[in-house]
Amino acid sequence: MQALPAFRYFAPTSVDEALGLLAELGGEAMPAAGGTDLVPSMRQGLFAPKSVISLQAVDALRRIGWDDGAGLEIGALATLREVAADAEVRRRFPFVARAAHAVGSPQLREMGTVGGNLCLDTRCTFYNQSQGWRDTRGACVKTGGEFCKASPNGRARKCFAVFSADLATALVAADARVTLRSARGTRTLALAEFYTGDGAKPNARAPDELVTGVSIPARMQDVFGTYLKYRVRQSIDYPIAGVALTLRADAARRVGDEVRLVVGGVTSRPLVVGAVAELLRGRSLDDALIEQAAALARKAATPLANTAGDRAHRREMVHEMTRRALREALNHAQ
C-alpha cells in the first residue's frame, strides 16, 4: 500500500486551540476536516505537510442554524450529508441542499465538510496523478515548475487547474459570506471574493487562518435558486461542469436586481458570469432572452483540456445547463 508521508498529528478540541496551533506551526501545518481531499493528495505526494491538525473534535464548528436577522449559518465542520439533510437548509435553500447532495458519494458526503468543500484544491489531469506519473513529465506550475502542461502550446506560466466544488459554486450564487479566523483576528468576506482565480493558489486563506463557517443572507430565502451538475457517472465524480443560478422575478416575469449565474468545474474559481446578470436585470424572462443568456454563459466559460470531457463539450454543457436553469426559473415565476 502506498503509505502517506509522515506527519505530526494534532487533534484540538476548541477553535482557540486550533488557531493557536496554526499560529505556531503556520505554513508547515495543514488543517484537515473530513480528509477526503487532503488524504488522496497526500497519497499522491501532492502535499507533505509536517503537521496535520485534525479538526474533527472541534464540535463548536458543527452547527447549522437559522436566524431571521443573520440568515443561515453553517459551521465549517458540518458534513455535506448534514447540510443536504438539514430541515432549515432544505426548506429555505433547497438548491444548496441539492448541491451538497451532488458532491461525491454517500461515504464522501458522510466524511466531507462544508469547510473542506470551500477550500477544495483545484484539479487537473496533469496534477491529480501519482508521483511516478508526474515525474515522467516534469513539474507543472502548480507543482513548482515553470509552464502549464494543459495550456495549448504548453507555454502558459499560469495554472489553470479547475475548481470543482459543487456546494461552493451554489453558495457563491447564494451570495454567501465566509468567515476566517486566526490568532490575529476574524475577517468575513464575500465568498466570491475568497477565490483568487489562480489554479495554483485557489483561495485567499492565509496559512494561519481557519475557515470557521459560511452564512447565507436572510434576504436570499425567497429568491429562486437551482444547481445543475454534469458528470460522467451519476455518483462519485467531480463535475465536468456545474451551473448555479439565483434569480428573483416578479409575476410579470421581470427579473429584479437579485440575479446571479455561477459556473463551476471549468475555470479556477466559481465563475460569476456578470454579463448574464447584466443582460437579465430589468428584462422580462422569455425563451429568446434565455437563449441569449445561455450563449453569454458559454462565451464566458473557457476551459482548457484539463478534466474529463473535451473543451467544446464542456462549453456546450454550460450553455445547456444555463438554458435549463433559466427555464426552471421561468416556470417558477409563472
Binding site: 480528509g35 477526503t36 488522496p40 485534525s54 454517500p106 461515504q107 458522510e110 466524511m111
Partner: peptide
Amino acid sequence: TVLVAGRPVLACLTLAVA
C-alpha cells in the same frame, strides 16, 4: 467502507488515530 460511530466511511481516507 466500514462503519465508524455508525456512519459509513472510507477506511482508506480515514486516519486510524482519528
